[in-house]
Design a protein around this nucleic acid. Structure first.
Lengths: 177, 177
DNA sequence: GTCTATACCAGGATAGAC
DNA sequence: GTCTATCCTGGTATAGAC
């Protein structure tokens, strides 16, 4: 990527995340990126192409996190790590995740293969721990992650106390390591 | 409201919820509602006015639910009712809530006075039950509600098993009434 | 790789007739 | 209350020069 191309990429990501894709015109991106409007189309074909470039690049990074959790063998630790996920979002990635959560509501969620595996591995962990309804438990964890992530991404608050509360409910707060 | 006015209202709500406000043009609304485009502006001044009409009408209804929970004196029952909230969304109101959740990410959340009171009354309930960090617990419940609501509104699944899982964690599953 | 100019279409909004 | 016609702006996208 050339410097200007990277400029377009970063600026678009931020504007998309803040105002939504539809409310962000290519001309606004061009101006904010200090670039001619035509260049956007040269590099990314069209607005949709720009969006896709942003999404696939972000999901690639995200998948690394999911795989780290899937690779955890101890079921308790795996669940704990999953619950910790939304508390560890790198603030550099806020814009990307805001964009992902926004798009959920209009274009359907962006599912990576890593996410699919993540879900299955959670259910498996609950099964190993003899929970009554493992698949429901897994979906609940997912919902909690989404809820906390929303809280973290939208309001700019310090969320750590919430983590304590959750872990206590799963009896994971005194887990070694 | 005249019949056509109601038509515009309902159609706009559904289109806004499904595709987002920005992606829904007034002409699309007009066509889908079987109405001339000009009529929208006669009745609602502009697109923003139409959106506001939809939002304030919906929040009025929503506040009734919040007040029912605030009015609950027993702290355990109050928390239980709060957690049950997302499982009881009337399917007729799906479009409205989808819209509300969508707007969170672009225009900031739509806060009613009922919601503010709801939040405070939750913290109070946890305090009465001697939880360590009542305000964090209240925010956690809110996050869980948001997460479940997202699940319910986006995927069309049967969510009841999740409710069982949650209530167990709060030790509220065997609460009489 | 990058900019300028431009074509083209769609969106929001208004005026005036019925 | 409702429709038709119309205006203006701004959005996406392309062509061609440098």
């Amino acid at each position: 990527m050339t410097e200007k191309q990277q400029n377009i990429f970063d600026t678009a990501l931020n504007l998309f995340a803040e105002h939504g894709v539809d409310a962000t015109s290519t001309s606004k991106i061009a101006i904010a990126a200090g670039v001619s409007e035509g260049l956007i189309f040269r590099h990314f074909k069209n607005k949709e192409g720009l969006l896709n470039a942003i999404l696939s690049s972000g999901m690639e990074k995200a998948d690394a996190y999911f795989h780290a959790i899937i690779g955890e063998i101890d079921p308790k630790t795996r669940i704990k790590k999953a619950l910790e996920l939304p508390f560890q979002i790198d603030s550099k990635d806020y814009a990307f995740w805001r964009l992902v959560y926004t798009l959920k509501w209009q274009r359907g969620s962006i599912e990576s293969d890593g996410m699919e595996l993540f879900r299955a591995s959670l259910a498996e962990a609950f099964e190993q721990l003899d929970y009554e309804n493992p698949s429901a438990e897994a979906r609940l964890v997912e919902a909690i992650i989404d809820g906390i992530a929303t809280e973290v991404l939208l309001k700019d608050i310090y969320p750590k106390p919430l983590l304590e509360c959750i872990l206590k409910k799963y009896k994971l707060n005194k887990l070694h390591k």
